[in-house]
Amino acid sequence: MKSLLFRLAGIFSAEIGSELYLKLKEETLSPSLFCLDFSEVTEVTEVGWEFLRKITTRCKETGCKIAGFGWKGTVTSEHQTLFSFFPDEAECIHHLESFYHDHAPANELSPKSSEGKTIQCPECQTLLRFKQMGDHLCPQCQTKFFVNQKGWVSIYERLL
């Protein structure tokens, strides 16, 4: 099971919602965990909430899990039913990892070794080894991404 962290910014409207939906639609072909960072989102429009509803439905249909954190606005009970919102990243990730029944990070595919850990490129799914957290570049597709201490992958892309 792989895990992805999406950092969102600006006004979450039809443009960002549709881009995010298309990206998640690709990623939900296999079971995944999705963490949405709303800490830099200034507003979610009504159309944005509709895209979040579509994303949640897609995740439920495919066995994926989704949660968000950092939203500074009011989360109504209707919005809370879409998916879980948490005050910070650590709680959100802990919640998502509770669905994974192993002690390894969600997207780590092999046990820890002295040579590093194995993850999948978030774009082309190539197996990659890494020794430490930080910025990485896939040699296959040239996608830039960040790996945190727990092995979570955050792809560098801008949703407009």
Rank of each mutant, 00 (worst) to 15 (best):
K131H: 08
F86C: 04
I55S: 03
D135A: 10
E78I: 06
I66W: 02
E157Y: 08
L29Y: 11
E97T: 08
F85N: 03
H101K: 14
V147C: 06
L82P: 01
M133W: 00
P31W: 08
W152R: 02
H103D: 11
G116S: 07
L5T: 06
T76I: 07
I11G: 05
E27D: 12
F146G: 00
E157N: 10
K23W: 13
L29E: 08
E40C: 12
I66K: 00
M1E: 07
L52D: 05
K54F: 11
L33P: 01
I55N: 01
E26P: 05
L82Y: 12
Q140I: 15
M133Q: 14
V147I: 15
Q140S: 13
S154K: 14
S32A: 15
L137E: 11
E123N: 15
K54Q: 09
V75N: 00
E19T: 00
E108W: 04
I93C: 02
P31R: 13
I93A: 02
K25Q: 15
F69E: 00
E26K: 15
I119H: 03
L109F: 13
Q132C: 01
S13V: 00
H101P: 00
K117M: 10
S3K: 07
K112Q: 11
I93F: 00
D37V: 12
H136I: 03
F99M: 04
G10C: 08
I11S: 09
T28D: 06
R58Q: 14
A14H: 09
L36N: 03
E46F: 12
L109S: 10
L24W: 02
W152Q: 03
E61S: 13
I11H: 09
L137P: 04
Q142F: 11
S113C: 08
E27C: 12
C124D: 10
R129T: 08
V41E: 02
T81K: 15
S114M: 08
R53M: 02
